[in-house]
Design a protein around this nucleic acid. Structure first.
Length: 931
RNA sequence: GCCGGUGUGGCGAAAUGGCAGACGCACAGGACUUAAAAUCCUGGGACCUUAAAAAGUCGUGUGGGUUCGAAUCCCACCACCGGCACCA
C-alpha cells in the first residue's frame, strides 16, 4: 500500500493536498494485487521455456543434460528404446482454429483441465505427451483475402502468433517442440499423402478391410484398359461422383452432410440447395459397421456415442423385389417391416428414381414431369419446412405384390429419399405414420395386417410389434417371428433378402476454395476423349497451391484455383484438379503427427506410433482427448474413419485413435447467454490474466463446476479464487515484505523484477520442526482428496479441498516445512506459477537443492494418519436424525446400541416406547426403530 | 415426434442409499482504520416460537412407490438444455 501520512498536518492547504493524494491512493489500492503474479508468471514461463521443461522424449531421442525429466528418471543422452522410458501418457486438446478474434474463455477451460492432468501424470512418473497446434486452413482467412487481397497465409500467421502469445501466457505445459499447423507445407504434404493412400485403396468386403487397389480383381467383362480403369475408380476409397450435393451459394462451395444443419450451412447459417455436381467423395460408408461396433471399445460418454450411433443410423430389414405389372423390370424396396408385406397397398419411388421415366404412362407423363421439377426446385430448408404436408403423383403404372399377387399403384413422392435404401418403398399405410398420412391424402387403400397386443389400441397407424393378421401364412405370428418367416420365404423364392442399411452417406470431400490442401490429382483424356483422373506420384508432394491475385471463384463458377492457368494446365495437355480438401482433412490426423512432428520421411515413424499409441495397460491410442461437443459427428467421426483406413493398411497400430474422450461444457456469459460479440458478453482471457493472473484464471475455470457442465461466467468468482491464492501466498510470505510489494506495484522496469522478488522473505513461522498429528492429518486428508479427485477429473472439489487446507493452516502458529512443501506439490498442477515460486523460495531459504516442481514425485497419503480413534455417529429414531454420539472407532454393536439409546436428544422420542429394532451401519449411523 | 442429459439456498455448486447445502460468490454484523480499500473474525435454507436461544415442523422440479432410512433407486408427469428429424 502507498505510504500513509505520519507527519502532523500543518495547514489547510496541505490537508486538501493530502486528501487528494489519498484519493489517488484509494483508486490505486483497489487494484492492489494479492501477490505479485505479474512478476512470478512471466518469470516461470520463461524458465520452463528455456529449460524445455515439458519436452516429451521419444525412443531414440536425446535427453539433454540437466533436463528435469532426465534427472527424475535417471536418463541422460540417447534413449535406447521404449523400454528405457517410463510408461507413456498421451493427453490431447482439440487444436484451435486461430481466428482473428483471439482466445475465448472457453478455450482455456479444456486446456487447463488437460494441463492439470498432464502435470499430475508427470509428477506421478509418466512420460507425458501434451502437444498443441493449429487447425489453420479455413474460410475466414480466405474471405479476408477476397476482401483485402492479403494472402491467407499472412493472416493465418498473424493469428497464430496472437494465439501462441495468449496460450503461453496461461502457463500450459505443452511440448512446443512438436507444434504444428495444418497449413505448414511439411504438414499438408502428408495430408495429401494420406489422401493418396485412400485413393489407392479399396474396401474388400470379404476381408472387411481396406486393401491396396492392386489386390482388386477385375470381373470377366473388364476386357479393355478403359473398363478396368473405370472399375477400379468405382471401388476406390476416394472416388469421383456426379450426384446431387449440398451447394451453398453464399459460401460458394459444396458442403458435407455433417456441415448442413436444418438446411443451412453450419458456418454462417446460409441456405444450402441440392445441386448435381462432380465431386470427390470418401467411402466412409464402407466403415459404417466398424465405426459403430468399435464404439464398444472406447471410453466416451454415452450421449456422444449415441450421437454417433444415430448419425450412422444402422437399421436391419429386408430388400424385396416387386415386379412391374406388364413390364420386365423389378423395383427393389428396402423395409424394416417385411412382416407387413401383405399390407403393402401401393409403392412410392423417389422422384429421382431411375425407373420413373420408363414406367410412367403417357397420360401421367406431364404430371410426373411437373412434380419432378417441383421436388428438385425445393431447397433442403423448404423440404424440411414443408415436411408436414405430403405431396406426390401417380405414375400410372402398377406393381405386383409378391405375396398375394395384388396389383398395387406406383406413385412418386419426395418423402421417399433417393439417397437412402433403394430409393423406393412399399407403402404399408396401416402401420407407418407417413404412409398413412399419404394414403389419407390421396385416398389409397389401408389394410390392417398387425393386431396390437392391447385390443383397445387403435390399429390405424400402429407401428409397434403385435401379431400378424390378414397375412396368409404369417397369421398369428408375433412381429419378430413373422419377420423371420417372411425373410426365409423371400430368400427361398429369390424375391428378396435380409439387408442392413445406414443413414450415413459417403463423405463429400472437395471444396471450391483456395485456402485448403490441393488434391494431388490430374485429369487426362483417353482415346475416346473421356476425362479420367490420375494420382500424382508421392515424389510430387507437397503439391503447393498457386499464388493468386484474386481469391474469388471464377465468373464461370469454377473454384479459385482455376484462375491460375499456368498451374492448372500441364505441358502434356492434362489439367490439375482445382478443388481443395475440406478443413477436416488436416484435423483428421494431427494427433498422429504430434508423435513424430519433425519426421521428414514418413507421416509418423513406426517407433513413435508404437510407443505413444500402444496400449499402456488400460487403453490404446490417445489416453485422454478433451474438447467441445460440437465435433460429435464431424471431426470425431472423420478422424476415426481415417484412422481405421490407416490401421487396415498397416500404417498405424491401433484400431481407434482416441481412447477416452471428455467434452468440456460451454461457458456462458454472466447473463446466462451464450457468449457472442453481438451480445457483448464475451470475456477476454487477456483482461482476466492482466487483473488476476493466469493462475487465478486457471483455478477459477476449474472451480466453476464439473468440467462437462454448461456454466455461466462470474467475475466475482474469479476474485474468490484469487483471494484464495493470496491467502496461500501470505501463508508462506513474511508480511514485512510489504515494501517489496509496493515497489513491485509501481515498477514498470522488468529488469528490476528479480531484485524486487529477492526482497520478499518467507514467513518466520515456517520451521523444520516436526509436524503435529493434527497438521499431518489435515495434510494427508488433502492429499487423499486431491489425488482421488484428479483421477476422477473432479477439479472443483479438489480445489475446495485445498481451500480447506489453507483455511486450517492459517490458524497454525508454526508451519512445518515438509507439510508446506507437500501442499505446494498438490497446488502445482492447478496454479503452477505461484507453486513453483514458493517451492523455489522454500528450498533456497532452507539451503536445499531445488529441482523443478514439475517433476517432483507426487505425494502419497498415509491412511494410518487419517484413522480416527473416536468417531461421531448420527443417531436416528425411526429414520429421523436426532443426535450424534461419540464412540470408539472399533466399538462393537452392543456399545454403539447402548450409547445410542442413551443419546440425550433422542430421549424425548424413545422414552416410554419399545425399541423394536436397532439398525447399525458400521461407521455410518445408528437407527432406533420404536413402536 | 424420437434419442440423450439436467432439475438442490439469492447465485456457482457439494453430498450417488445414512447428519442435505462442503467449498466459493453475493449479503449482513464485527475487528483494524480519522475514513475507505484490503485483511481477519462471526452469521446465515424456509417456517414456527423467542428479548435471544434451545426445542420443533417443513425442505433437493411435481405426484406416487421401494426401504428402518431416498437429493441418490423404481414408476408416471412437468420444465429446461443438447442432438436428430419424412432414413421406410
Amino acid at each position: 500500500m502507498a505510504s500513509r501520512c505520519a507527519e502532523p498536518i500543518q495547514s489547510d492547504f496541505p490537508i486538501a493536498r493530502e486528501a487528494r493524494i489519498r484519493q489517488n491512493d484509494v483508486s490505486m489500492s483497489s487494484s492492489r494485487r494479492q501477490y505479485p503474479f505479474h512478476l512470478i508468471e512471466p518469470k516461470w514461463q520463461q524458465a520452463w521455456e528455456k529449460q524445455q521443461a515439458f519436452r516429451a522424449f521419444n525412443p531414440g531421442e536425446t535427453v539433454p543434460p540437466e533436463h528435469p525429466f532426465g534427472i527424475r528418471h535417471g536418463l541422460s543422452g540417447k534413449v535406447a528404446d521404449a523400454k528405457s522410458l517410463p510408461a507413456k501418457y498421451y493427453i490431447l486438446d482439440m487444436f484451435p482454429y486461430p481466428s482473428g478474434a483471439g482466445l475465448h474463455v472457453g478455450h482455456p477451460e479444456g486446456y487447463t483441465a488437460t494441463d492439470i492432468l498432464a502435470r499430475y501424470r508427470r509428477a506421478c512418473g509418466l512420460n507425458v505427451l501434451h502437444p498443441m497446434g493449429w487447425d489453420s486452413f479455413g474460410l475466414p482467412a480466405e474471405q479476408y483475402a477476397i476482401k483485402t487481397g492479403q494472402h491467407p497465409r499472412k493472416t493465418t500467421e498473424t493469428n497464430i502468433a496472437n494465439f501462441t502469445r495468449q496460450i503461453k501466457s496461461l502457463g500450459f505445459s505443452y511440448d512446443w517442440s512438436r507444434e504444428l499447423a495444418t497449413t505448414d507445407v511439411e504438414y499438408f504434404k502428408w495430408t495429401q499423402w494420406i489422401f493418396l493412400m485412400l485413393y489407392n485403396s479399396w474396401f474388400n468386403p470379404e476381408a472387411s478391410k481396406a486393401e491396396p487397389i492392386e489386390t482388386l480383381k477385375f470381373p470377366a467383362d473388364c476386357t479393355t484398359e478403359e473398363k478396368k480403369r473405370a472399375y477400379r475408380d468405382s471401388k476406390r476409397l476416394a472416388f469421383v461422383s456426379e450426384a446431387p450435393v449440398n451447394w451453398c451459394p453464399e459460401l460458394g462451395t459444396v458442403l458435407a452432410n455433417e456441415e448442413v444443419i436444418d438446411g443451412k450451412s453450419e458456418v454462417g447459417g446460409f441456405p444450402v440447395i441440392r445441386k448435381p455436381m462432380r465431386q470427390w467423395m470418401l467411402r466412409i460408408t464402407s466403415y459404417a459397421e466398424k465405426l459403430l461396433a468399435d464404439l464398444g471399445i472406447i471410453d466416451w460418454s454415452d450421449s456422444l456415442k449415441e450421437m454417433q450411433r444415430n448419425w450412422i443410423g444402422r437399421s436391419e430389414g429386408a430388400e424385396v423385389d416387386f415386379q412391374i405389372a406388364g413390364g420386365a423390370e423389378k423395383i427393389r424396396v428396402f423395409t424394416t417391416r417385411p412382416d407387413t408385406l401383405f399390407g403393402a397397398t401401393y409403392m412410392v419411388l423417389s422422384p429421382e428414381h431411375r425407373l420413373v421415366p420408363q414406367l410412367t404412362t403417357t397420360e401421367q407423363k406431364q404430371a410426373v414431369e411437373d412434380y419432378k421439377k417441383f421436388a428438385a426446385g425445393k431447397s433442403d430448408l423448404e423440404r424440411t419446412e414443408l415436411a408436414k404436408e405430403k405431396s406426390g403423383v401417380f405414375t400410372g403404372a402398377y406393381a405386383i405384390n409378391p405375396v398375394n399377387s395384388e396389383k398395387i399403384p406406383i406413385w412418386i413422392a419426395d418423402y421417399v429419399l433417393a439417397s437412402y435404401g433403394t430409393g423406393a418403398i412399399m407403402a404399408v399405410p396401416a402401420h407407418d405414420e407417413r404412409d398413412f398420412e399419404f394414403a389419407k391424402k390421396f385416398n389409397l387403400p389401408v389394410v390392417q395386417v398387425v393386431q396390437p397386443g392391447d385390443a383397445k389400441t387403435d390399429w390405424q397407424g400402429f407401428t409397434d410389434d403385435g401379431s400378424a393378421i390378414n397375412s396368409g401364412f404369417l397369421n398369428g405370428l408375433s412381429t419378430p417371428e413373422a419377420k423371420k418367416k417372411i425373410s426365409a420365404w423371400l430368400e427361398e423364392k429369390g424375391l428378396g433378402k435380409k439387408t442392413i442399411n445406414y443413414k450415413l452417406r459417403d463423405w463429400l470431400f472437395s471444396r471450391q476454395r483456395y485456402w485448403g490442401e490441393p488434391f494431388p490429382i490430374i485429369w487426362k483424356k483417353d482415346a475416346a476423349g473421356n476425362l479420367y483422373h490420375e494420382a500424382l506420384p508421392e515424389s510430387a508432394l507437397p503439391l503447393l497451391p498457386p499464388s493468386l491475385e484474386d481469391y474469388k471463384p471464377t465468373s464461370g463458377g469454377e473454384p479459385p484455383l482455376a484462375r491460375a492457368k499456368d498451374w492448372v494446365n500441364l505441358p502434356d495437355g492434362s489439367v490439375r484438379e482445382t478443388n481443395t480438401m475440406p478443413q477436416w482433412a488436416g484435423s483428421c490426423w494431427y494427433y498422429l503427427r504430434y508423435l513424430d512432428a519433425k519426421n521428414s520421411g514418413a507421416f509418423v515413424g513406426k517407433g513413435a506410433d508404437n510407443y505413444w499409441m500402444a496400449s499402456n495397460g488400460k487403453a490404446a491410442g490417445v489416453d485422454l482427448y478433451v474438447g467441445g461437443t460440437e465435433h460429435a459427428v464431424l471431426h470425431l467421426l472423420y478422424a476415426r474413419f481415417w484412422h481405421k483406413v490407416l490401421f487396415d493398411l498397416g500404417q498405424v497400430t491401433t484400431p481407434e485413435p482416441f481412447h477416452k474422450l471428455v467434452n468440456q461444457g460451454l461457458i456462458l456469459g454472466e447473463d446466462m447467454q451464450k457468449m457472442s460479440k453481438a451480445r457483448g458478453n464475451v470475456v477476454n482471457p487477456d483482461a482476466v490474466v492482466a487483473e488476476y493472473g493466469a493462475d487465478a484464471l486457471r483455478l477459477y475455470e476449474m472451480f466453476m463446476g464439473p468440467l462437462q457442465d454448461t456454466k455461466p461466467w462470474n467475475t466475482k468468482g474469479v476474485e474468490g479464487v484469487y483471494r484464495f491464492l493470496g491467502r496461500a501466498w501470505r501463508l508462506f510470505v513474511d508480511e514485512k515484505s510489504e515494501t517489496a510489494f509496493e515497489q513491485a506495484e509501481t515498477t514498470t522496469d522488468p529488469s528490476k523484477h528479480d531484485e524486487l522478488l529477492d526482497l520478499i522473505l518467507l514467513d518466520g513461522g515456517i520451521t523444520e520442526m516436526d509436524a503435529t498429528p493434527a497438521q499431518l492429518k489435515t495434510l494427508h486428508a488433502c492429499i487423499k482428496k486431491v489425488t482421488e479427485d484428479l483421477d476422477g477429473m473432479r477439479f472443483n472439489t479438489a480445489i475446495s479441498a485445498m481451500m480447506m487446507f489453507i483455511n486450517e493452516a492459517m490458524t497454525w502458529q508454526t508451519k512445518p516445512l515438509p507439510v508446506m512443501k507437500t501442499f505446494l506439490q498438490l497446488l502445482a498442477p492447478f496454479a503452477p506459477h505461484i507453486a513453483e515460486e514458493l517451492w523455489a523460495r522454500l528450498h533456497s531459504t532452507f539451503g536445499l537443492q531445488a529441482t523443478s516442481l514439475a517433476y517432483a514425485a507426487w505425494p502419497k497419503y498415509d491412511p494410518a494418519l487419517l484413522v480416527e480413534s473416536e468417531i461421531e455417529l448420527p443417531v436416528q429414531v425411526n429414520g429421523k436424525f436426532r443426535d450424534t454420539i461419540k464412540v470408539a472407532v472399533d466399538a462393537d454393536n452392543a456399545t454403539i446400541e447402548a450409547a445410542a439409546k442413551a443419546a440425550e436428544k433422542a430421549q424425548p422420542f424413545i422414552t416410554g416406547k419399545t425399541i423394536k429394532k436397532v439398525i447399525i451401519v458400521p461407521k455410518r449411523m445408528v437407527n432406533l426403530i420404536v413402536a
